[in-house]
Protein backbone atom coordinates (compact mmCIF):
# COMPACT_ATOMS: atom_id res chain seq x y z
CA UNK A 1 0.00 0.00 0.00
CA UNK A 2 1.35 3.39 -0.87
CA UNK A 3 0.90 5.97 1.83
CA UNK A 4 0.23 9.42 0.46
CA UNK A 5 2.12 11.87 2.59
CA UNK A 6 0.95 15.45 3.03
CA UNK A 7 2.87 17.87 0.82
CA UNK A 8 4.53 20.90 2.31
CA UNK A 9 6.40 23.79 0.73
CA UNK A 10 8.48 26.72 1.95
CA UNK A 11 8.43 29.90 -0.12
CA UNK A 12 10.71 32.88 0.23
CA UNK A 13 9.62 36.46 -0.33
CA UNK A 14 11.36 39.67 0.75
CA UNK A 15 13.40 38.49 3.74
CA UNK A 16 16.83 37.52 5.04
CA UNK A 17 16.34 33.70 4.92
CA UNK A 18 16.73 33.42 8.70
CA UNK A 19 13.34 31.76 9.18
CA UNK A 20 14.17 29.12 6.59
CA UNK A 21 17.28 28.46 8.67
CA UNK A 22 14.99 27.79 11.64
CA UNK A 23 13.67 24.90 9.52
CA UNK A 24 17.14 23.71 8.53
CA UNK A 25 18.41 23.95 12.10
CA UNK A 26 15.86 21.36 13.21
CA UNK A 27 18.56 18.78 12.43
CA UNK A 28 17.41 15.22 13.17
CA UNK A 29 13.83 16.35 13.46
CA UNK A 30 13.99 17.65 9.91
CA UNK A 31 15.00 14.17 8.73
CA UNK A 32 12.17 12.63 10.78
CA UNK A 33 9.83 15.21 9.31
CA UNK A 34 10.54 13.86 5.83
CA UNK A 35 9.12 10.48 6.98
CA UNK A 36 5.82 12.18 7.70
CA UNK A 37 5.58 14.73 4.90
CA UNK A 38 6.89 15.31 1.39
CA UNK A 39 8.78 18.55 1.04
CA UNK A 40 7.79 19.64 -2.47
CA UNK A 41 9.34 23.07 -2.71
CA UNK A 42 12.06 24.51 -0.50
CA UNK A 43 14.66 26.26 -2.68
CA UNK A 44 17.16 26.74 0.13
CA UNK A 45 17.09 22.98 0.72
CA UNK A 46 17.32 22.16 -3.00
CA UNK A 47 13.71 21.28 -3.87
CA UNK A 48 12.32 23.55 -6.57
CA UNK A 49 8.74 23.14 -7.69
CA UNK A 50 7.14 26.57 -7.29
CA UNK A 51 3.83 25.81 -9.00
CA UNK A 52 2.86 22.56 -7.25
CA UNK A 53 -0.34 22.10 -5.25
CA UNK A 54 0.50 21.68 -1.54
CA UNK A 55 -1.23 20.87 1.74
CA UNK A 56 0.75 23.33 3.87
CA UNK A 57 2.51 26.39 2.48
CA UNK A 58 5.02 28.18 4.71
CA UNK A 59 5.71 31.76 3.70
CA UNK A 60 8.84 33.64 4.69
CA UNK A 61 9.17 37.30 3.81
CA UNK A 62 7.01 40.32 3.11
CA UNK A 63 5.39 41.66 -0.03
CA UNK A 64 7.77 44.36 -1.25
CA UNK A 65 7.97 43.93 -5.05
CA UNK A 66 5.41 43.59 -7.87
CA UNK A 67 6.76 40.06 -8.40
CA UNK A 68 6.06 39.18 -4.73
CA UNK A 69 2.49 40.30 -5.21
CA UNK A 70 1.96 38.12 -8.25
CA UNK A 71 3.55 35.03 -6.67
CA UNK A 72 1.65 35.10 -3.37
CA UNK A 73 -1.73 34.97 -5.13
CA UNK A 74 -0.65 31.95 -7.14
CA UNK A 75 0.69 30.18 -4.04
CA UNK A 76 -2.46 30.87 -2.04
CA UNK A 77 -4.59 29.44 -4.84
CA UNK A 78 -2.62 26.18 -4.72
CA UNK A 79 -2.26 25.77 -0.93
CA UNK A 80 -4.82 24.20 1.40
CA UNK A 81 -3.33 25.76 4.55
CA UNK A 82 -1.07 28.79 4.57
CA UNK A 83 1.26 29.69 7.45
CA UNK A 84 3.35 32.85 7.62
CA UNK A 85 6.68 32.40 9.40
CA UNK A 86 8.50 35.30 10.96
CA UNK A 87 8.20 39.04 11.35
CA UNK A 88 8.47 39.87 7.61
CA UNK A 89 5.66 37.59 6.45
CA UNK A 90 3.52 38.29 9.49
CA UNK A 91 4.02 42.03 9.98
CA UNK A 92 6.04 43.39 7.06
CA UNK A 93 9.44 43.08 8.78
CA UNK A 94 12.20 45.59 9.43
CA UNK A 95 12.05 46.60 5.74
CA UNK A 96 8.59 48.07 6.39
CA UNK A 97 10.41 51.04 7.95
CA UNK A 98 10.32 52.26 4.33
CA UNK A 99 6.60 52.78 4.83
CA UNK A 100 7.49 55.87 6.89
CA UNK A 101 9.82 57.23 4.18
CA UNK A 102 9.92 58.10 0.49
CA UNK A 103 11.02 54.78 -0.97
CA UNK A 104 12.02 56.21 -4.32
CA UNK A 105 14.32 58.67 -2.56
CA UNK A 106 15.93 55.83 -0.57
CA UNK A 107 16.41 53.67 -3.67
CA UNK A 108 18.02 56.60 -5.49
CA UNK A 109 20.34 57.22 -2.57
CA UNK A 110 21.46 53.58 -2.32
CA UNK A 111 21.65 52.12 -5.84
CA UNK A 112 23.83 53.45 -8.65
CA UNK A 113 21.16 52.50 -11.22
CA UNK A 114 17.83 52.91 -9.40
CA UNK A 115 15.90 52.30 -12.62
CA UNK A 116 16.95 48.60 -12.48
CA UNK A 117 15.26 48.13 -9.08
CA UNK A 118 11.69 46.87 -9.08
CA UNK A 119 9.87 47.61 -5.85
CA UNK A 120 6.60 48.58 -4.21
CA UNK A 121 6.39 51.78 -2.19
CA UNK A 122 5.62 49.78 0.94
CA UNK A 123 6.50 46.45 2.54
CA UNK A 124 3.38 44.68 3.77
CA UNK A 125 2.52 41.44 5.55
CA UNK A 126 1.14 38.47 3.60
CA UNK A 127 -2.24 38.90 5.30
CA UNK A 128 -2.70 42.26 3.53
CA UNK A 129 -2.96 40.37 0.24
CA UNK A 130 -4.27 36.85 0.85
CA UNK A 131 -5.99 34.87 3.59
CA UNK A 132 -3.54 33.53 6.18
CA UNK A 133 -4.56 30.46 8.19
CA UNK A 134 -1.89 30.68 10.90
CA UNK A 135 0.74 33.24 11.87
CA UNK A 136 4.02 32.24 13.50
CA UNK A 137 5.83 35.33 14.76
CA UNK A 138 9.48 35.96 15.54
CA UNK A 139 12.69 37.25 14.02
CA UNK A 140 13.53 34.54 13.35
CA UNK A 141 10.69 32.15 14.01
CA UNK A 142 11.35 29.33 16.50
CA UNK A 143 11.95 25.94 14.81
CA UNK A 144 10.09 24.18 17.60
CA UNK A 145 6.98 26.24 16.86
CA UNK A 146 7.16 25.26 13.18
CA UNK A 147 7.54 21.62 14.08
CA UNK A 148 4.68 21.74 16.58
CA UNK A 149 2.47 23.39 13.96
CA UNK A 150 3.20 20.63 11.44
CA UNK A 151 2.76 17.84 14.01
CA UNK A 152 -0.56 19.25 15.14
CA UNK A 153 -1.84 19.79 11.61
CA UNK A 154 -0.93 16.18 10.73
CA UNK A 155 -3.49 15.22 13.39
CA UNK A 156 -5.99 17.57 11.71
CA UNK A 157 -6.02 19.97 14.64
CA UNK A 158 -5.35 23.69 14.31
CA UNK A 159 -2.22 24.55 16.33
CA UNK A 160 -2.83 26.54 19.49
CA UNK A 161 -0.16 29.22 19.60
CA UNK A 162 0.01 31.11 22.89
CA UNK A 163 0.04 34.87 22.60
CA UNK A 164 0.82 35.53 26.28
CA UNK A 165 3.55 37.96 27.36
CA UNK A 166 7.24 37.05 27.37
CA UNK A 167 7.16 37.74 31.13
CA UNK A 168 5.38 34.46 31.81
CA UNK A 169 8.09 32.55 29.97
CA UNK A 170 10.77 34.49 31.87
CA UNK A 171 9.23 33.56 35.19
CA UNK A 172 8.84 29.90 34.22
CA UNK A 173 12.51 29.86 33.19
CA UNK A 174 13.65 31.40 36.48
CA UNK A 175 14.91 34.61 34.86
CA UNK A 176 15.10 37.63 37.13
CA UNK A 177 13.32 40.68 35.66
CA UNK A 178 15.79 43.11 34.07
CA UNK A 179 13.27 45.95 34.29
CA UNK A 180 12.85 45.62 38.04
CA UNK A 181 16.48 44.89 38.98
CA UNK A 182 18.39 46.93 36.40
CA UNK A 183 15.97 49.62 35.24
CA UNK A 184 16.36 48.38 31.64
CA UNK A 185 13.34 49.21 29.42
CA UNK A 186 12.14 45.77 28.33
CA UNK A 187 9.46 45.02 25.71
CA UNK A 188 8.63 41.68 27.35
CA UNK A 189 5.37 42.80 29.02
CA UNK A 190 3.79 43.66 25.63
CA UNK A 191 5.52 41.04 23.48
CA UNK A 192 4.22 37.63 22.52
CA UNK A 193 5.89 34.55 23.94
CA UNK A 194 7.30 31.74 21.81
CA UNK A 195 11.02 32.52 21.80
CA UNK A 196 11.62 30.91 25.20
CA UNK A 197 12.52 34.33 26.65
CA UNK A 198 15.82 34.20 24.79
CA UNK A 199 17.13 37.73 25.43
CA UNK A 200 16.22 38.10 29.12
CA UNK A 201 17.83 34.68 29.66
CA UNK A 202 21.17 36.31 28.88
CA UNK A 203 20.43 39.39 31.00
CA UNK A 204 19.28 41.78 28.30
CA UNK A 205 15.93 43.30 27.45
CA UNK A 206 13.37 41.85 25.05
CA UNK A 207 13.18 43.95 21.86
CA UNK A 208 9.80 42.71 20.77
CA UNK A 209 10.75 40.51 17.81
CA UNK A 210 7.75 38.20 18.40
CA UNK A 211 5.30 41.05 17.95
CA UNK A 212 2.53 42.23 20.27
CA UNK A 213 1.03 39.93 22.90
CA UNK A 214 -2.72 39.41 22.74
CA UNK A 215 -3.67 42.17 25.20
CA UNK A 216 -0.76 44.65 25.21
CA UNK A 217 -0.93 47.82 27.29
CA UNK A 218 1.55 49.88 25.29
CA UNK A 219 0.42 53.16 26.90
CA UNK A 220 1.30 52.01 30.39
CA UNK A 221 4.61 50.49 29.30
CA UNK A 222 5.51 53.69 27.40
CA UNK A 223 4.84 55.73 30.54
CA UNK A 224 7.05 53.38 32.51
CA UNK A 225 9.86 53.71 29.93
CA UNK A 226 9.55 57.47 30.26
CA UNK A 227 9.86 57.21 34.05
CA UNK A 228 12.92 55.04 33.55
CA UNK A 229 14.51 57.92 31.68
CA UNK A 230 13.76 57.14 28.02
CA UNK A 231 13.15 60.03 25.63
CA UNK A 232 10.02 60.04 23.43
CA UNK A 233 12.21 59.21 20.43
CA UNK A 234 13.79 56.22 22.18
CA UNK A 235 10.33 54.92 23.10
CA UNK A 236 9.13 55.34 19.50
CA UNK A 237 12.11 53.38 18.24
CA UNK A 238 11.36 50.54 20.66
CA UNK A 239 7.95 50.08 19.03
CA UNK A 240 8.83 50.98 15.43
CA UNK A 241 11.39 48.26 14.95
CA UNK A 242 11.18 44.67 13.63
CA UNK A 243 7.38 44.56 13.92
CA UNK A 244 6.74 48.23 13.14
CA UNK A 245 3.59 47.46 11.11
CA UNK A 246 1.97 45.27 13.79
CA UNK A 247 -1.04 47.50 14.62
CA UNK A 248 -0.45 47.70 18.41
CA UNK A 249 3.23 48.61 17.98
CA UNK A 250 2.53 50.98 15.08
CA UNK A 251 -0.03 52.87 17.17
CA UNK A 252 2.28 53.08 20.18
CA UNK A 253 5.21 54.16 18.04
CA UNK A 254 3.28 56.89 16.24
CA UNK A 255 2.06 58.42 19.49
CA UNK A 256 3.51 61.91 19.95
Amino acid sequence: MTVIKPKIAVYKFTSCDGCQLAFLNLGNDLLKLTDAVDIIHFAELGMVNPNAKVDIAFIEGSIATPHDLERIKNIRAKAKFLITIGACATAGGIQALRNFADTAEWVAAIYPKPETISYLATSTPISTHVTVDLELWGCPVNGEQILTAIKTLLLKVKPAIKRDSVCLECKRSGNVCVMVTKNIPCMGPVTQTGCGALCPSVGRDCYGCYGPSENPNTDSLSKQFQQQGCSRETIQRRFLFINNQAPAFLKAGMKK
Binding site: L155, K171, P189, N215, P216, N217
Partner: peptide, 25 residues
Protein backbone atom coordinates in the same frame (compact mmCIF):
# COMPACT_ATOMS: atom_id res chain seq x y z
CA UNK B 1 -1.87 47.07 34.49
CA UNK B 2 0.21 45.43 31.74
CA UNK B 3 -1.72 42.16 32.00
CA UNK B 4 1.72 40.50 31.80
CA UNK B 5 1.26 37.98 34.61
CA UNK B 6 4.38 38.84 36.62
CA UNK B 7 2.33 39.25 39.82
CA UNK B 8 0.73 35.82 39.60
CA UNK B 9 4.02 34.17 38.66
CA UNK B 10 5.86 35.48 41.72
CA UNK B 11 2.90 34.99 44.09
CA UNK B 12 3.67 32.08 46.45
CA UNK B 13 0.02 30.97 46.48
CA UNK B 14 -1.03 31.33 42.81
CA UNK B 15 -1.50 27.80 41.50
CA UNK B 16 -2.95 28.09 37.98
CA UNK B 17 -1.52 26.08 35.13
CA UNK B 18 -2.42 25.41 31.51
CA UNK B 19 -2.05 22.00 29.88
CA UNK B 20 -0.82 21.24 26.39
CA UNK B 21 -0.55 18.21 24.19
CA UNK B 22 2.67 17.75 22.22
CA UNK B 23 2.26 15.05 19.59
CA UNK B 24 5.29 13.19 18.24
CA UNK B 25 5.98 13.28 14.51
Amino acid sequence: CLSCGNCTSVCPTCFCSSETETPAL
